[in-house]
Design a protein around this nucleic acid. Structure first.
Lengths: 174, 174
DNA sequence: TGGGATTTGATGGGGGTCAATGGGAATTGA
DNA sequence: TCAATTCCCATTGACCCCCATCAAATCCCA
């Protein structure tokens, strides 16, 4: 199951916040009942994921770090600076003060789904950025090139986002 | 099975609307019994699809989002803005107020099939647009170029390309 | 083929359940 | 012993399950 949608929850005075039920459901099969959080490299937000995805990141960085200084830095900033946050009985986590400060979070927390990962924002920061994303997407006429369906070989055609849409992607009518 | 046809249903005072039986049948095999909805990027409408299609969108964005600002925008406006809406026992969903407002929906809801996806409109808004679309298609003399049967499994690969679009063009944004 | 009977999909509404939240008690560790 | 963390329970309000009704399509049999 995917992380989707935007869910705004409250940060209580103990620094706890409920992880959306839908997100918890996505993590149901993980052996570790909780999430991993680390600071985003390009946004004023936190990146979050489950255990299996974190292991995938680790594996990728592991391979790359041998050859690339950049990957080496990433290993430090992702693996070294990530927080492993277990759920309490009610499905909440405690947001570390360091991360609260980094994301500029006040009393509200926005969980924003991104498929296999999610981000955590101050909702007041995220909303205008999302609006800007929508405007840019509209202006450039972006069309997402979908990966081939599962019954076609995945190797044949990598996904790619085009700069401009075709002349008209309306399906043919009658 | 595909999403086809236009079906107009009523929005009740609880914000619920029945998803057309035909559409539900199309989603029968999905593990998640419900639909995903997000705001269209170019129309005053909502884009809808089932879980597997949303997975396909996520997979297409996933690897890319790390490097492309454009894919990043799409992740925010599709994955981050989509609503996962489960069916109740009667096959209804609850339309979130945010989406009702965006689509300018009053008390009636038009479900319009688009193959593997569908759109949701205020019928009063959609009708004139549909008429205009038909007129344009007639004037343009568009011809639908069918894909060869061999690489078109009936279960998953309907024809969708217009005379001007490339054979593999398939937009996820509208 | 027609008209009544039956099934099924769409709609309305009430109430129980559960997710989100807040706070206190118990436990742990320094 | 004190502070911080974890566990537990209580509240509340939104959501989901259930049932009841209605309309429309389908079926059935003469």
């Amino acid at each position: 199951m995917l992380f989707t949608g935007t869910h705004i929850h409250k940060l209580d005075r103990k620094g706890r916040v409920s992880v959306p039920k839908r997100f918890r459901a996505t993590l149901d099969h993980e052996t570790f009942a909780g999430i991993y959080l680390y600071q985003s490299h390009k946004e004023n937000a936190l990146e979050g994921c489950g255990e299996s995805h974190m292991e995938r990141i680790a594996a990728s960085l592991d391979d790359l770090a041998m050859f690339s200084d950049e990957a080496d830095d990433l290993a430090d900033t992702i693996l070294g600076a990530s927080h492993m946050l277990p759920f309490d009985g009610e499905g909440r986590i405690i947001l570390p003060p360091e991360l609260i400060e980094f994301a500029g979070i006040d009393d509200q927390v926005a969980f924003v789904g991104r498929g296999r990962t999610f981000r955590i924002w101050n909702p007041d920061v995220f909303k205008p950025l999302q609006d800007a994303s929508r405007t840019r997407t509209l202006n450039r006429g972006s069309t997402l090139k979908l990966k081939p369906l599962s019954d076609t070989p995945a190797s044949s055609r990598p996904a790619a986002a085009t700069g401009t849409a075709g002349p008209d992607d309306e399906g043919a009518t009658g």
